[in-house]
Nucleic acid binder design. Structure first.
Length: 299
DNA sequence: CCGGACTCCTGGTTGC
DNA sequence: TGCAACCAGGAGTCCG
């Protein structure tokens, strides 16, 4: 599932292609991908056609491209918001390249510095979406704008303005399990099931350890491991990235060959050799080492 | 505030 | 071989 590293790879790859480009045509093949757009498909097409695109931005798993609509000034700031959901991909293609069967939305873009390109939004399961949204003040950093539908999403741990101390304080006040907290995008964003399991394994913390009983040093270790695992994935996603084609979902985008816990049930724990277990938790799988990762009770 | 259930959805895999 | 059931889960909403 696309998590922070995969979305960041898309953002970075998209940037040189779309920043400064103009949308010359929009095709909506499946309106269900506009579920989060406030208006019909025609409205989306009308407002995107002719729009000038700025450099894409990201918070957590949300991606957006600020747009300058053809109308010009007087209009409030807007952005094309992209969420990849479970299976979304953004592909940059030559204008005449064949389309993926599961392409839901497609844009033709013209750029003053390079040839016309096509941007395809491919999404098998349609949990992802595109929408036009207005930009609002993020609230903590003046002048920092985010789409209104992203305003409740916390900053992600790779964000310079992420406040470690505030995160630890909120964590301590929560009355819940640590994995639930890691997956709560309003507390810390960008982490999904894969990297949650990986970071918890690295920090030797059980997924259901109550947040209130997690000592400050262990919480610090966990946040450091979160950043480490996201950073590694980012580096690997970056190396396999081909400037011509952005591929989000493919196995290549994930550093599946370096997973220690996720999907490793039945395999020996790389640290202690005991078998990794998979348990059902929060309607999904939780993978962990039952020896390295035990719930610690406060004494 | 918290957690569980439910919704969106389809391709690939499993099981009979 | 054929087909149906099952599984994957990000995020929002609703309810107890």
């Amino acid at each position: 599932m696309p998590e922070l590293p995969e979305v960041e790879v898309v953002r970075a790859g998209l940037e040189p292609a779309v920043a400064g480009a103009t949308v010359t045509a929009v095709n909506v093949f499946d309106g269900r991908s506009l579920r989060r757009h406030d208006g019909p498909s025609e409205d989306f097409v009308d407002r995107m056609t002719g729009a000038r695109l700025a450099a894409p931005r990201r918070r957590g798993k949300f991606l957006w491209v600020p747009i300058d609509p053809p109308g010009g000034s007087g209009h409030e700031a807007e952005a094309l918001v992209v969420h990849l959901g479970m299976s979304g991909q953004v592909l940059l293609r030559e204008p005449d390249a064949p389309r993926d069967r599961l392409t839901r939305i497609s844009f033709d873009i013209a750029h003053p510095l390079h040839p016309v390109l096509r941007v395809d939004f491919v999404d098998q399961r349609i949990f992802g979406s595109m929408s036009i949204d207005r930009l609002v003040e993020s609230g903590d950093v003046p002048g920092d704008l985010v789409p209104s539908q992203v305003s409740h999403i916390a900053r992600d741990p790779m964000d310079r303005a992420f406040d470690d101390a505030a995160f630890f304080a909120k964590l301590a006040k929560r009355n819940t399990g640590i994995k639930r907290a890691l997956l709560d995008q309003t507390l810390i964003s960008g982490i999904g099931n894969i990297y949650a399991d990986e970071a918890l394994w690295a920090a030797r913390i059980h997924y259901d350890q109550p947040t209130a009983t997690l000592s400050r040093p262990r919480a610090k270790t966990l946040l450091a491991e979160v950043r480490l695992v996201l950073g590694k994935a980012l580096a690997e996603g970056g190396t396999s990235f081909d400037a011509q084609y952005l591929n989000v979902n493919g196995e290549s985008g994930y550093f599946s060959h370096s997973l220690n816990a996720y999907g490793q049930q039945g395999e020996p724990c790389p640290r202690c050799g005991r078998l990794i277990v998979r348990e059902q938790f929060m309607n999904r799988g939780s993978h962990f080492c039952p020896f390295c990762q035990r719930i610690r009770t406060a004494r």
